[in-house]
C-alpha cells in the first residue's frame, strides 16, 4: 500500500456568503439582486396583463351605463358632441360602405329619422367605421341619408363602444344612459321605433 499524502486538516473558515452581491430580504425570502429584478419584472408583467383583462371584461357600453362621450366630425365638417345632446334621445348607428348588412337597414333608418325629425327631441348620428370617404359619400347618396354622418377618426368611437362589427346601433336615453343596443341590422322600421318610443315623453 503506497503512502498516501494527506493534506493537513483545513482550518475552520467561516461559511462564504450565499451570494457575492448584496442580498435582499423580502417577506422572509432572501433574494439576490438578479432574482429580485426578475420577480419585480414578472409581477409587473402579470399586473399589466391582469389590468388589461379587467378592462376588457368591463363593458362601458352596457345598458344602464352612462354612454361613452364622443365628438363626431361630420363629412360636412360640423362637430357634434354627445354631451351637448343631453335631454334628447340619441341613436348612434355604426356602419360602413363595404358592409352589406348595413344596406338592409339604411332605408329604414332614414325613414325613422324623417319620422322623428319634426319632434326635435330625437337625434340620429351615423358613425362610419373603417371606411374611405369616397365610398362613404357614395353610400350616403345612394340611400339618401340626410342625418349627420362622419368618420370614426382613429376608430376612437367604435373602441369606446367596444363594437364587434357593423352594423351596430346604440340608443341613448335623454339622461345620457344607454337604453338599448342592436347588434346587426334592423329588419323593419317598427324595430327602430320600438327602441325609441319608450324613451320619449308623451
Amino acid at each position: 500500500m503506497t503512502d498516501i499524502q494527506t493534506a493537513p486538516p483545513a482550518p475552520e473558515t467561516p461559511a462564504p456568503p450565499a451570494s457575492r452581491g448584496g442580498r435582499f430580504v423580502i417577506f422572509g425570502l432572501s433574494l439576490s439582486l438578479g432574482a429580485l429584478i426578475a420577480w419585480i419584472a414578472l409581477i409587473a408583467l402579470l399586473a399589466i396583463v391582469a389590468l388589461s383583462m379587467f378592462r376588457n371584461a368591463q363593458n362601458p357600453a352596457a345598458e344602464g351605463n352612462v354612454a361613452p362621450d364622443f365628438t363626431l366630425t361630420t363629412f360636412s365638417g360640423e362637430q357634434i358632441s354627445l354631451a351637448d345632446l343631453q335631454g334628447k334621445v340619441v341613436v348612434v348607428n355604426f356602419w360602413a360602405s363595404w358592409c352589406k348588412p348595413c344596406e338592409q337597414e339604411a332605408a329604414d333608418l332614414e325613414t325613422a329619422w324623417q319620422f322623428y325629425r319634426p319632434r326635435g327631441d330625437v337625434v340620429f348620428l351615423g358613425v362610419d367605421y373603417v371606411d374611405t370617404e369616397t365610398e362613404a359619400m357614395a353610400y350616403l347618396e345612394k340611400f339618401d341619408i340626410t342625418y349627420p354622418n362622419g368618420a370614426d377618426l382613429g376608430t376612437r368611437i367604435s373602441q369606446a363602444y367596444r363594437i364587434k362589427g357593423v352594423p351596430e346601433t346604440y340608443v341613448i336615453a335623454p339622461d345620457g344612459r344607454l337604453a338599448g343596443a342592436r347588434i346587426g341590422p334592423f329588419t323593419s322600421l317598427a324595430q327602430i321605433q320600438a327602441m325609441i318610443d319608450p324613451l320619449l315623453s308623451p
Partner: peptide, 22 residues
C-alpha cells in the same frame, strides 16, 4: 382593423380593396 392579422396587401375583403385603392 376589420380583418385582424391579415396584412392589407393580401386581404381579400372589400374594405381592404378600398384601402388599397385609396
Amino acid at each position: 382593423p376589420v380583418c385582424e392579422n391579415i396584412p392589407l396587401d393580401v386581404c381579400p375583403t372589400q374594405a381592404c380593396a378600398q384601402w388599397r385603392s385609396l
